[in-house]
Design a protein around this nucleic acid. Structure first.
Length: 333
DNA sequence: TTTATTTGACCGGC
DNA sequence: GCCGGTCAAATAAA
């Protein structure tokens, strides 16, 4: 546990937020009229991914004693639901080991060569994105292999960054349909993108009322809990096509993307720990990530999302960031 | 013609 | 020897 030390954790946190930033920008693109069903579905996919990544980032940040002490990461309502970080340890307190990721099978034979990568695990839905795989995550991937995995119902697909050759981008990901729900995919990211995001993904877009509605629904339901055990094990992950129908009497979990990786030595850590995103790694850019989320919600006057996400501006990336501790999980009550 | 995907073979860790 | 991950030729699609 605590592989890679606190600087590695901070690097992962920044990487997470960079992904969020990219997703938000893509969401902005979907907000331009005319809106259609496919666009709305894609927006939902993006929202799902944004929340999942935010969830994990919050978890990482909460593990920083300074950040947690400042009470700047979570809204008051969410803090009321929190359990103490100290005392009884969370089942996810040693996030970083595979056996705490319910959607990942233990892989004792994982190669050492791949273990050095920074890795992230998320569970995403295929709903609205076709049955072939989860929605686009903002990067361009090229499939290079597929394998039947022992004990798994569905094969695992292997992707690498399209810019692997042109920009020597080392990022790869593995996508595998979950056994229990064909609509869900477990996605494991290895390495960090050193390629530059496409310019198209950064264009601003006008307002799309359907996407705004989806965001509004997201904001209205957004709460945070540190009971990752419940979130990860007892409750099903969110699917974009299902969350609008969920009632308040049926608590359920968003995907619990428990952060896990190896030692994170594949990347530098300070001050700009994410290769290829060096110019994104500043505090100002992190604020931009959060501000982008807030700006979208603010268009419809969504104080909940606004205040919650704006509180994330307290991300100061304390130099003593520690990955130890419980991982909270977002869920919709 | 170029680019992406498929799929069997190969490699290396265990 | 088993298994997961990657390679690369063949094939398909744009």
């Amino acid at each position: 546990m605590a592989e890679g030390g606190e600087s590695g954790g901070r690097a992962r946190l920044i990487s997470e937020l960079v992904c969020v930033k990219d997703l938000v920008r893509r969401l902005e693109l979907q907000l331009r009229p005319p809106a259609d069903a496919a666009s709305v579905d894609l927006c939902r996919q993006l929202i799902h991914q944004i929340v999942a990544l935010t969830d994990r980032s919050i978890g990482m940040a909460r593990c920083s004693p300074d950040l947690a002490a400042a009470h700047c990461l979570l809204p008051a309502a969410a803090q009321q639901q929190q359990q103490p970080l100290s005392g009884a340890p969370s089942p996810l307190s040693d996030a970083g080991s595979d056996h705490h990721q319910p959607f990942l099978r233990a892989s004792p034979k994982k190669r050492k060569a791949t273990a050095r990568w920074t890795s992230q695990q998320v569970r995403v839905s295929a709903a609205g994105a076709g049955a072939e795989g989860p929605a686009d995550d903002g990067h361009s991937w090229r499939k290079y292999g597929q394998k039947d995995i022992l004990g798994a119902k569905h094969p695992r697909a292997y992707y690498r960054c399209t810019h692997r050759n042109s920009q020597n981008c080392p990022a790869t990901k593995q996508v595998q349909r979950t056994d229990d729900d064909p609509k869900l995919f477990d996605v494991v990211y290895h390495g960090d993108h050193t390629c530059r995001p496409s310019a198209a993904s950064t264009r601003r877009a006008p307002h799309n009322p359907h996407a705004q509605a989806a965001l509004q629904g997201l904001a209205a339901r957004l709460t945070v809990t540190t009971d990752a055990a419940i979130a990860a094990a007892a409750l099903p992950p969110m699917t974009p096509d299902s969350y609008p129908a969920r009632g308040a009497s049926s608590p359920w979990s968003l995907a619990s993307p428990v952060g896990s990786d190896s030692n994170g030595c594949a990347q530098g850590v300070s001050p700009c720990p994410v290769p290829g995103y060096a110019d994104w790694g500043s505090h100002g850019d992190l604020q931009e990530v959060v501000s982008a989320c807030a700006a979208v919600s603010d268009l419809q006057g969504l104080p909940v999302l606004d205040s919650e996400l704006m509180s994330l501006e307290c991300f100061a990336f304390d130099q003593s960031f520690d990955m130890g501790g419980a991982m909270p999980s977002l869920f919709y009550p």
